[in-house]
C-alpha cells in the first residue's frame, strides 16, 4: 500500500518539480452565432508533479472546462496540451481513452458512484476497466479503502454512506490504479465545511506524491490554503498564478 499512501515526508514539494501538464494557447467555445460562449481564451499554464494545483474563480469562468480539457475528456478548439510528455490534443479518441484509463484518476463533485455496487466494487472500477479480474480488483480496492479509513464500509452501498464517506470512496476509486494525474472537480462542494477540510486533508495525504500531479477545481476559498499553486481564472483565462510556500500547508509542519 506504500504506493497508494505515501508517507508525510513524501508529501513535501520536491525542490525542482517536473512539468506534468503543459497548456499553451488553449481555446474552447460552446454554441454558435449569438449563443456562442468562449469558455477558454488562449489559456497558458503549467501543472507540476508533487504539487496540489488549484483552479479557482467565479462561476462560469471556465474552471471546469479547463479541467475537462486537462483530463482529456473534452477536446480543445485550438492550442496545445501535453500531459506527462504526451500531446493529448493530437491523440486519437481510442488512444486518449486508453491514456485516461492508465494515467488519470477522477474525483467528481457528485461522486458518481454506481448505486448498485458496494464501496469496494465502486473503488475497483478503474482496475476492472484496465482488465483486472473482479476478485483481484475488489481485493485491491478494499486495501485502498482501508488506507483511507473506510475499511469497515467496504461492503456498504452508496445509499448507506454519508456524503463524506461517498467522497472517500470516490477518492479511493481515483487512486486505486495509481494514476499520474488526479483531477478533482469541486470535491468539497457537496460537503459541509468540516467534512470538506477532512476530504482535502485526505487528498493531500493520499494523493500528492513526487511523481503525481493533482489538479483541483474549487470555488471554496476555505480550502485554498491546501494548494501549492493556485490559478485564478476569470472570463476564460488565467489571470494570476499564486505560489504558496510549504509552511502554509496544514500538514507540512
Amino acid at each position: 500500500m506504500q504506493d497508494v499512501m505515501p508517507e508525510k515526508a513524501r508529501l513535501t514539494k520536491p525542490s525542482s518539480p517536473d512539468v506534468a501538464v503543459r497548456i499553451r494557447k488553449v481555446t474552447k467555445h460552446f454554441g454558435s452565432g449569438d449563443q456562442m460562449v468562449m469558455a477558454l481564451r488562449g489559456v497558458d499554464w503549467d501543472v507540476y508533479t508533487g504539487q496540489m494545483s488549484l483552479i479557482v474563480g467565479p462561476s462560469g469562468c471556465g474552471k471546469t472546462t479547463l479541467l475537462s480539457v486537462i483530463a482529456g475528456i473534452l477536446d480543445a478548439d485550438a492550442g496545445e496540451l501535453t500531459v506527462f510528455g504526451q500531446e493529448v490534443t493530437r491523440m486519437r479518441d481510442r488512444t486518449k481513452t486508453r491514456f485516461r484509463a492508465q494515467n488519470i484518476g477522477f474525483v467528481f463533485q457528485q461522486y458518481n458512484l454506481l448505486p448498485a455496487l458496494t464501496a469496494s466494487e465502486n473503488a475497483a472500477i478503474p482496475l476492472v476497466i484496465a482488465g483486472w479480474s473482479r476478485g483481484k480488483a475488489v481485493s485491491r480496492a478494499r486495501e485502498v479503502l482501508g488506507m483511507i479509513g473506510m475499511g469497515n464500509k467496504t461492503e456498504s452501498l452508496p445509499s448507506q454512506l454519508s456524503g463524506g464517506q461517498m467522497q472517500r470512496v470516490a477518492i479511493a476509486r481515483a487512486l486505486v490504479h495509481e494514476p499520474k494525474l488526479l483531477v478533482c472537480d469541486e470535491p468539497t462542494a457537496a460537503l459541509d465545511h468540516e467534512m470538506g477540510l477532512t476530504v482535502m486533508e485526505l487528498l493531500r495525504e493520499a494523493a500528492v506524491r513526487p511523481d503525481r500531479a493533482v489538479v483541483i477545481v474549487t470555488h471554496d476559498n476555505r480550502v485554498f490554503h491546501f494548494g501549492d499553486r493556485i490559478a485564478y481564472m476569470d472570463d476564460g483565462a488565467i489571470r494570476r498564478v499564486e505560489e504558496r510556500s510549504n509552511d502554509a500547508q496544514p500538514n507540512s509542519h
Binding site: R100, F106, I125, I129, A130
Partner: peptide
Amino acid sequence: LKQFGALKAMGATNFR
C-alpha cells in the same frame, strides 16, 4: 447517463 459518462471518463471504451 452520468454513470456511463463516469465510466467513459475513467477510460471505458464505447465498445465495452
